[in-house]
Design a protein around this nucleic acid. Structure first.
Length: 276
DNA sequence: CGTTGAACCTGTTTGC
DNA sequence: TGCAAACAGGTTCAAC
C-alpha cells in the first residue's frame, strides 16, 4: 500500500511526537509473524528504556534510530498503518502491536498481516539497505540516465524493481509512465536520451506531488496521525480504467504487466513496436 | 543473471 | 440475491 510518498508523510507526521521519547515497551501484540528478527517478548526487553533519537525513511521502510545505535525498522507492505496516538486507543483485531512511549504510543495496524518489524544493529541494517537501489529524490539526472542505461526489460517491471529505484510502487509507477508518455511494456534498452530524461522528471514529479498531497488514500492508507491523504484526487492513470485521459481524451486502459494491474493511456503512451 | 509464479493474508469488489 | 473468483498499495523465494 504505502509507497515512498505515503511513508515519507508518515515519517514527517510521527517524527515530532516521538523524537526524544523514551520507550516503555511493547504493550500489545497479536500476530507473531509480524516480528521478523526478535519474538515479541525479546523485542520488548530490547526496547524497554531506550530513547528514540530520530525517525527516518529508506525506500518504503520507516526507521527509528535508538540511543543504543540500533534501528527499529518497519515495513507496512500492503495494508499497514503506523500512527502516533497521544492517548491510548484500544487495539482492534487488526492491531499488530503497540509501542508505549513515556508520552503517547505508536501503533501498528495491518489487516493483511504482511507488515513486518525488525531490530537491527547498524551493520545489519547497512547490509539490508545495500540491497535496495538509490532514492529517486536524491539522484541527479545524470545518475538516473546512467543507471537506466545499464538496465533492460519492460519499464513497468523496472520501476517496481526496488534494486532499480527504491520506493516507487504500483500507483506512482503508472503515474510516472503516464506523465512521461511511455508505454509500460516499452523496454528500457529502446529508450533514447530524451525519453530517459522525461522519465527522470516524471518519476520525481509524481513522487513530489504525492508528498505534497500527503499520499494517496484509496483503501487503507492514513498518515502518521490517522488522517487520509488527498493525492487520490490527482491521479491521471492509476485506477482510472475507462475514464478519459485528461491530456488527450482517450479511454484509460488496464492491462497486467509485471504481474500488477497497470493503467495507461493508449494514445499518449503508444505501444512499443514488435513483440510486447 | 534475469524472468516468472507462488506464497504470504484478509477484506472488498466484480461477474456469472 | 448468492456465491465464487478476482483483485488490492509489497516483498521474498523457489523454479525455470
Amino acid at each position: 500500500m504505502p509507497e515512498l510518498p505515503e511513508v515519507e508523510t508518515i515519517v514527517r507526521d510521527v517524527r515530532p511526537h516521538v523524537t526524544g521519547r523514551r520507550i516503555r515497551g511493547l504493550r500489545y501484540w497479536n500476530w507473531e509473524r509480524t516480528f521478523a528478527t526478535h519474538p515479541p517478548a525479546e523485542l520488548d526487553a530490547a526496547l524497554a528504556g531506550r530513547r528514540i533519537e530520530g525517525v527516518g525513511r529508506r525506500a518504503k521502510r520507516i526507521l527509528f534510530r535508538l540511543d543504543d545505535e540500533r534501528l527499529l525498522v518497519m515495513s507496512l507492505r500492503m495494508t499497514g498503518q503506523l500512527t502516533f496516538r497521544a492517548k491510548p486507543l484500544a487495539p482492534t483485531a487488526f492491531t499488530r502491536f503497540i509501542l508505549a512511549l513515556d508520552r503517547g504510543e505508536v501503533r501498528f495496524d495491518d489487516a493483511r498481516k504482511f507488515g513486518r518489524v525488525w531490530l537491527y544493529t547498524p551493520a545489519e541494517w547497512a547490509a539490508e539497505s545495500a540491497k535496495l537501489g538509490p532514492e529517486p529524490l536524491e539522484m541527479s539526472e545524470e545518475e538516473f540516465v546512467r543507471h537506466l542505461s545499464l538496465r533492460k526489460g519492460m519499464l513497468k517491471a523496472l520501476l517496481l524493481d526496488q534494486k532499480f529505484l527504491a520506493g516507487v510502487g504500483n500507483i506512482y509507477a503508472d503515474e510516472a509512465l503516464w506523465r512521461a508518455g511511455l508505454h509500460p511494456r516499452k523496454r528500457a534498452e529502446t529508450l533514447r536520451r530524451p525519453e530517459k530524461e522525461r522519465l527522470y522528471e516524471a518519476v520525481r514529479h509524481v513522487l513530489e506531488a504525492g508528498i505534497r498531497n500527503r499520499g494517496t488514500s484509496i483503501d487503507d492508507y492514513v498518515g502518521g496521525t490517522g488522517e487520509q491523504g488527498s493525492h487520490q484526487s490527482f491521479l491521471e492513470a492509476y485506477g482510472r480504467t475507462g475514464e478519459p485521459c485528461r491530456r488527450c481524451g482517450a479511454e484509460i486502459r488496464r492491462i497486467v504487466s509485471g504481474q500488477r494491474g497497470t493503467h495507461y493511456c493508449p494514445k499518449c503512451q503508444p505501444a512499443p513496436r514488435g513483440r510486447g
